[in-house]
Computed example of a mutant assay.
Amino acid sequence: MKVLSVILLLFLFSFRAAAGDSSFIKIPAGTYEVGLKGHVDNPLRKITVRAFLIAATELTNAAFEKFVLATGYKTEAELFKNALVFEPGLEEFQWLDDSTAYWRYPNGISRGGITDKMNHPVTGISFTDALAYCKWAGVRLPTLDEWEIAARAGSVTKYFEDVTPSTIGRYANIWQGLDHLQSDNSDGFMYTAPVGSFKPNPLGLYDVLGNVFEFCSGSRPRDGGRPVAHARGGSWWCSRNACNFFNGVDIGSVNPHASFSNLGFRVVKDQ
């Protein structure tokens, strides 16, 4: 299995230059193993995908601003005043309603805006907002399986090569503290970090295990027909004691119209 993983990585690397854009990584068509044995939401299986190009980084505030300036688009957080934000001192999994929060002020006006954070991932947006951006830009969200293939980079475990629970801080912006009652700046960032601040996975994708959760398209078996959006990877809020989703296997779900300050996306182009 180790040999097969190495061969797969070499195969994938051979296509990177062919993408024609260093900000995108080409994933060739083929059959891949996804999921994990015994995982309820993401069981081990093989799937076949067409070739696609996936962004090396999460979409930034600067990129989203271009969309807004060109179209006059209003996000759902601006329209519905329903964004959820975080500040240290909250119990686990508690968030605050803040009617002033949206992508320019992802944690609310009182906690500062993005003027000096244009190279950070855009947050404070909903799944619907992400789809609107994609339609304008001529791109799309990765499917759940595409995201996993690219993020795991040939690994047959939850983590790609060289990542362990003790080394994940080199690859991901996550919450290092024991809880969320006290602020955590131990990795230099309490909230989001500029995209690409941490080491990439073996294919050259940054922040797949942390910084912000990333919206994906598609559904998983247990959705039951209810409207739901899915997100993958980890976020700056995720810690070992709460959430713990900073891996390539787990799949999160959220209301399609909800906006959080730890939720963004990266885009895909069809090949």
Rank of each mutant, 00 (worst) to 15 (best):
M1D: 09
K2D: 14
K2L: 13
V3A: 14
S5A: 15
V6N: 10
I7W: 11
L10M: 12
F15N: 12
R16I: 12
R16N: 15
R16L: 13
A19P: 13
F24I: 03
I25Q: 09
I25V: 15
V34G: 07
V34N: 04
G35L: 01
G38R: 06
G38M: 09
V40L: 04
D41H: 08
K46A: 11
V49T: 14
F52Y: 15
L53R: 14
T57G: 00
N61S: 02
N61V: 15
K66N: 11
V68F: 03
T75M: 05
E76A: 06
K81Y: 07
L84N: 08
L84T: 05
F86N: 03
P88R: 04
E91D: 12
E92R: 09
Q94D: 06
L96F: 00
S99F: 02
S99E: 14
A101N: 07
R104E: 13
Y105E: 10
G108C: 08
G112D: 07
N119T: 13
F127G: 01
A130E: 03
K135V: 10
W136F: 15
L141E: 04
E146P: 11
A151R: 05
S155T: 10
S155F: 06
V163T: 07
V163E: 02
T164C: 05
S166A: 14
I168N: 06
R170N: 08
A172C: 10
G177C: 10
L178M: 07
L178K: 14
D179N: 15
H180R: 11
H180K: 12
S183N: 08
N185C: 07
N185G: 05
D187V: 07
Y191I: 04
V195S: 01
S197K: 08
K199P: 00
Y206D: 09
N211D: 14
V212D: 02
E214P: 05
C216K: 02
S217Y: 00
G218Y: 09
P221N: 05
R222L: 08
D223Y: 00
A229G: 13
A231E: 02
A231P: 00
R232T: 01
R232N: 00
G233R: 05
G233A: 04
C238T: 15
S239L: 08
C243E: 08
F245K: 05
V249I: 15
V249W: 03
I251C: 13
G252C: 10
V254D: 02
P256W: 07
S261T: 09
N262D: 13
R266V: 02
